[in-house]
């Protein structure tokens, strides 16, 4: 097999553009997903089963259906109801937000519930209300435990954002597939994309591992 470096060089500026969009989509997905996920997490912890049900349904829907199906539903089904000309990048960000929100909700919930009940009780016995106990006592301890799984979720999100190439968002894999069309050659584009994903995710993995070790020492 001959590998044509000239194709890689020709497409390199596009790969870089695609990488930037991939990072942007993932970053916005993780930020909006965290905020959304925190709200869902509190919904999942409501004592009343009827009020809790919609939040559980939400989480389970997004965890138990393929992200590609979610993306297509949102891009071709939901977005046309909201905007006249659906934008692939916006659809991708919305899908990643809604999807990662479900996963992050579970990370937040597990983190919050991993803190000993005694901590909340001690805070309440000192006259703090529920919000103060959450804010000053439970969350600061829980966030430490959430950082590693949140980092892993971010890595997953970066990889999953490649699905957006299916709806022609001009992210990394979109350009990674382009040489296949022009030259009918799979290797150059796809391997370049794979390489860039690998470098990004590997870097993040190393960072997450470091942070995790650091947090363990502090405990």
């Amino acid at each position: 097999m001959d590998f044509r470096w000239d194709i890689v060089i020709e497409y390199l500026p596009l790969f870089i553009d695609g990488m930037k969009l991939t990072l942007l989509i993932s970053l916005l997905g993780v930020i909006f997903g965290s905020i959304w996920g925190l709200l869902i997490a509190f919904g999942r912890m409501i004592k009343n089963g009827w009020l809790r049900f919609p939040f559980s349904l939400y989480v389970n829907f997004f965890r138990c259906t393929p992200m590609l199906v979610q993306l297509l539903l949102i891009h071709f089904g939901v977005m046309p109801l909201i905007m006249s000309t659906p934008n692939a990048v916006i659809s991708a960000i919305v899908t990643l937000t809604l999807n990662s929100g479900a996963y992050m909700a579970e990370i937040f919930r597990a983190g919050i519930q991993s803190i000993d009940r005694g901590q909340t009780e001690a805070a309440r016995s000192l006259g703090m209300n529920q919000i103060q106990a959450m804010r000053f006592v439970v969350l600061p301890q829980a966030i430490k435990r959430m950082i590693p799984p949140l980092g892993n979720e971010f890595i997953t999100l970066i990889k999953d954002s490649s699905l957006a190439s299916v709806i022609a968002a001009h992210e990394l894999l979109y350009y990674g597939r382009a040489p296949m069309g022009h030259y009918s050659r799979p290797w150059e584009g796809l391997l370049s994309a794979a390489f860039i994903y690998f470098v990004i995710c590997m870097t993040l993995t190393v960072i997450v591992d470091k942070v995790e070790k650091r947090l363990k020492i502090d405990d």
Partner: peptide, 12 residues
């Protein structure tokens, strides 16, 4: 004021 068997100091 309440004092618990397992203290429940805030570790952070």
């Amino acid at each position: 004021g309440m004092v618990f068997q397992h203290f429940h100091l805030f570790p952070h």
